[in-house]
Amino acid sequence: MYPRQFEYSAPASLDEALAALANNPAAKVMSGGMSLIPMMKLRLFSPAVVVDIGKIGGLDSIEDRGDHLAIGALVRHVATANSPLVQQYAAALAKAASLTGDPQVRNQGTTCGAIAHADLAADQTAAVLALGATMVAKSTGGTREIAAADFFVDTLTCALQPDEILVELLVPKAGAGEGSAYTKLGRRGGESDYAVAGAAAWVRKTNGSVDAARVALTGVGSKAVLAAAVGDALVGSDGSATAIEAASAHAAEGVNVLEDLHGSVEYKTHLAKVYVQRALTAALT
């Protein structure tokens, strides 16, 4: 209910923020705070220093950079969801953002924050995996790019170092013949709340045949993961319902499915197939 005491800083520039992190190994970055503050209130996590990047200018834009979109660290879920650019070029991410949290959470929380938080049942994590996005991490030591496939390490753990800030998310723009989609089962049924299981799919079809596909799952294991076997199975097919069904059978291959309050391993393994099939179907239409 009440966080423990901590030091708070709200730097006005990215450099100041990076310096604050470099100087305080125990510091934690906060953007919207939608995940961090509840954990602090429950005293499950009590950082000594909170570096609030919310006052830094210039981090809240979605930019079209030719072959990719750049989503800044402070772009809110609602902005990602409603962005015509994201809807057109990265439909899976727009949909995932629209199903994140609830309206007030989407108004305050950020896409990059949710990705860095790396909740095992988050929505946008699966979308950035399927879309083959790249995370841009900055520290006083410099800038590095991390592929989404390398970004999610474990539950609530991503590849960012403690002194790094995820400053932007680079999402390849869907070109001709490419489509993506995200679909999920929420904890109360329907699509609301955290995902019991969700799947994001990105597919490219050339001359009537699937020549690339990436599918990712969320909610079924300890983190969002690529379902690599699905893409492999689908490539070379005609992307028909039959081909999708056959490829979806591989959904949980190589995925460490875990039981929780919302589903057994058997159920989640099954849901992985169902939602991969639904996501692929949507991505291909």
Partner: peptide, 15 residues
């Protein structure tokens, strides 16, 4: 102008 949850924001954030 935007609805948010005031129990999930620090007072400091609304400076």
């Amino acid at each position: 102008g935007t609805p948010v949850k005031s129990c999930t924001m620090l007072a400091a954030q609304v400076e």
